[in-house]
Design a protein around this nucleic acid. Structure first.
Lengths: 299, 299
DNA sequence: ATAATGTCTTTTATCGGGAAAAAACATTTG
DNA sequence: CAAATGTTTTTTCCCGATAAAAGACATTAT
């Protein structure tokens, strides 16, 4: 067993949803772009759809025969990338406590525990290392640096530097730049979410990421844009495990975002700076309060 | 053939140099820390030294019998890490021209060309990706973004942001911090180099890196410190292939460094800012002039 | 009894192989 | 003849295996 066919399974599931909408499927290349996979995978999908009686397939004609039932879908967990599986396991371990700074990370043990090959774990750790939470000892183990207060402070320091600069660049963008339309629709989404915050507060984190990424992109600097991956990763797991006052926090954040958006639209650099700093400050505080007090640091 | 013994060979070569200095070698653990390898490797080294008649080895006594001759050493090229070999090959290709932005990078082809396994090439590309020069297409090839003017500008923008902040942090460090001694000795090295610049100008790049790393470390921010790896990498190859006016450029840089050091020692934030910006500006210009004019960008 | 040496075990670094997925090429169809 | 389908080749992703290197344990020497 060398490679799981999760790409196929995931695309198949997404393909099933198309069947509800039409009576006949488009051409193979079109389906490929639609699902983001190669034609090879498209054909494997079509073959199975034919086999399970979902469609009749003959060359160009792909007629829908019936609507997909729940058990036509592949189970969710089979559609995950190995990288996602490893990341989740690793983060669970890291956040489950007992992950003291200075602790060694063992590739072989991790691989055995997760049930994957060492190569995948190694590749994951290399990719993960840019988040600044682990460090490699040459020819030897990795060292966990720990999700500490210091880490959060270093992270937010850069974040603030980058975002303040990006926000200024954003406000300076010409009126005809497409970003203003993007900002308008994000503003609408924020207003909608604000009005239904009591029930939909958990949808904020996704909106948050899209909003900040839009701003960072205005920097036109790949290092700034890429750095948002670090922030997004941290906030993603942070949101997952710190549910205290989630509704209140998100409610505050939404209103800060709206003020921030208004400032950007005013194109007044002073106002942008104030609104941006205010939001970043409260984001930092949220993150900091969720981190347990300084523990003794091993070795 | 699964793993080359370059660690052993490199440590062996370094070990040979110890033989000139003493008549008997220290204990195995001591040698281990001295050479930065495990005792296992130390014992392999000692075994060979005994075999080739360099030492007499009996338990704790390791008496030097003769001085090492040139052909006792392993050839330089056998002491390189696979990662170094791959990086060199890759950079040579990248800088040899014909490496247009948008070009695809093929893991298999690279591996075959360099004569290594695909795993090593993959790991290299993942590590290398943080330099912002290549980008991965999921389940598909890597894309070269090219060593362009835009890249250099984005890189220097961050560098300047980070270094100005670090320099300010440096100047604010308490008098009893050990960095001031480090700065003093770097200053001495600069003066020495300045006085012998006509013959030793090519030693500047190494000094340059140590100087800037010292400053960046004052930020106490891992992201800032780590970012210097990107700068160091770029400048390393930049120095290698752009030899135009190397002596003049380095002469100017040394004097800028000395002014910068003086500013730091004055602990006057205004002066530090001026000296730092001045040097960074000329560093940026040097880098920019070495980049060929904008070429047509593929796709 | 501490620190070294001797021996054994575990982990890392790297390769080759094989299934999944992409990509390239050849053929057909509207 | 352009765009689709059919077929073949290439590449990516991932595993298991193995030598190098690290690390752990046992024994000996000062």
């Amino acid at each position: 067993m060398s490679k799981s066919n999760n790409v196929y399974k995931d695309a198949y599931n997404r393909g099933l949803r198309l069947l509800d909408e039409t009576q006949s499927l488009p051409s193979e290349p079109e389906l490929g772009t639609l699902l983001g996979v190669s034609r090879t995978t498209v054909r494997t999908i079509l073959a199975r759809m034919e086999e399970t009686g979902l469609i009749a397939w003959n060359k160009r004609s792909k007629t829908v025969l019936r609507a997909p039932k729940p058990d036509d879908f592949f189970p969710e967990e089979e559609t995950d990338t190995l990288a996602q599986i490893i990341e989740r396991s690793f983060m669970r371990r890291l956040l489950a406590g007992g992950a003291e700074a200075g602790m060694q990370i063992n590739e072989l043990e991790l691989a055995r525990e997760i049930g994957v090959g060492t190569t995948s774990v190694r590749e994951f750790l290399i990719r993960f290392s840019r988040f600044g939470l682990i460090e490699k000892r040459r020819n030897s183990h990795w060292v966990l640096k720990g999700f500490t207060r210091a880490f959060a402070l270093e992270l937010t320091e850069i974040r603030e530097m980058f975002e303040i600069r990006s926000a200024a660049a954003f406000a300076a963008l010409p009126q005809d730049s497409p970003v203003w339309a993007d900002l308008d629709s994000l503003e609408d989404e924020h207003r909608l979410l604000a009005s239904e915050i009591t029930t939909r507060f958990n949808e904020f984190s996704e909106l948050d990421e899209r909003f900040h990424r839009l701003i960072h992109r205005a920097s036109h600097n790949r290092f700034i844009v890429d750095f948002y991956d670090v922030i997004a990763m941290i906030f993603h797991y942070h949101y997952q495990w710190n549910k205290a006052q989630e509704r209140e926090r998100n409610e505050v954040a939404v209103s800060e975002h709206l003020a921030y958006i208004a400032a950007l639209k005013s194109r007044d650099l002073g106002k942008v700076d104030v609104a941006c700093r205010k939001h970043l400050k409260s984001a930092r505080n949220t993150l900091l309060t969720s981190i347990p007090e300084t523990r003794r640091i091993a070795s």
